[in-house]
Amino acid sequence: MIRSLAAMTLATFATFATDSVAVAAPPKSPVSIVLVHGAFVDASGWKAVYDKLTSDGYEVLVVQNSTETLEGDVNATQRAIAAAKNPVVLVGHSYGGMVITQAGADPKVRTLVYIAAFAPDVGESVESLSANPPPNTTPPPIVAKDGFLRLDETKFPGQFAQDVPIATTRFLAAAQVPWGQAALTAKVTTAAWKSKPTYYVLTVNDMIVPPVAQRQMAQRASAKIIEVKSSHAAMLAQPAAVAAAIETAAQ
């Protein structure tokens, strides 16, 4: 249910990276990369990843979702896919995994990349995927009001992005975009990972989407798993590792 849900991304212009990362080779053929954020935040959380990918020569499109409904977010992502100049590597973080699972059925999408994300099967929602969390996990600090969801601002820094500077996470907590409860309960009608090459960046220090749950979803999707020592906020804590994983998927 809502209290056991685990889905959110982040938005910030600051980054904090610690692990060294191997640099991927240039793509064998031109591809475009479409980045899809998740709940509570906007697309600016991809800033550091975007900078790295564009500096390496990729066309990168960043989707700005309202996160009010899954249908609306899928539509926004489909417009970005249509605008891409090349075959698409479609990337989703957290709730963004719901979006790319549906939108990724587009024939222009070549590969899927999930970043600490929900990877649903047909008929599943964030709510259903979160209904039975693994033992000994702390539920995300969700606050529901008037059909929208937020994270408890006091708990956001220590649970969402514990390896990101506190000044950044305090701002993210204060600047949250309310997440529509309708997006939480919406079910996907197709699962693109069943027919597309799939990669999964598993964040081993995640306190929002438990790593055990991430691994189960990744294995079900037959995804190539890339483990990163990061909180849920992988694009902030380890942007170089996230970019490298995306470039690997782009080969």
Rank of each mutant, 00 (worst) to 15 (best):
I225E: 02
F40E: 12
T67P: 03
A245G: 14
A167P: 03
L149Q: 12
V204N: 06
N136Y: 07
M235C: 14
M217E: 05
P133H: 09
G38C: 08
K85L: 06
R215M: 05
K155T: 06
V126M: 11
T185S: 15
A240I: 10
A243E: 10
S29W: 02
A173F: 10
I226L: 13
A183D: 10
G92F: 01
T111R: 01
A186Q: 11
A84Q: 08
R220L: 05
S125C: 08
S125D: 02
A250K: 01
T69D: 05
N75L: 09
E247D: 06
V31D: 09
L5N: 11
R3T: 15
A234K: 10
I100S: 04
I100C: 05
Q219G: 04
Q159N: 12
I115R: 00
S29T: 13
A7S: 10
V201G: 13
Y200I: 03
V204W: 03
T69G: 08
I166R: 09
V126R: 01
T54G: 12
A175H: 15
I115Y: 00
S222T: 07
S29E: 13
A250D: 02
A24F: 02
A223N: 03
S55C: 04
F156W: 14
A233F: 04
E247F: 00
Q214L: 04
D73Q: 12
T168K: 08
Q176C: 12
K187N: 14
K196D: 07
L236H: 15
T9H: 08
A83F: 01
P140Q: 10
P211E: 11
H93I: 13
Q219N: 10
D206H: 05
A213M: 07
V201I: 15
P178M: 12
P157R: 07
D106V: 01
F148M: 13
E71I: 04
A244R: 09
D146K: 05
D106G: 03
D163Q: 07
A105E: 06
E59G: 13
G57Q: 09
K52E: 14
Q238K: 06
Q181C: 14
V34I: 14
S66F: 06
Q162V: 15
P27Y: 02
V74W: 09
A76P: 01
A167M: 12
T190P: 04
A161W: 02
A131T: 11
E124V: 00
A240G: 12
T137C: 07
P30G: 15
A117L: 05
P87C: 05
A76I: 09
S44K: 13
N136L: 11
V49T: 14
T138R: 13
A244V: 14
Y199H: 06
S4Y: 02
S94Y: 05
N86P: 02
F148P: 14
Q251R: 08
T154G: 07
V242F: 11
V113Q: 00
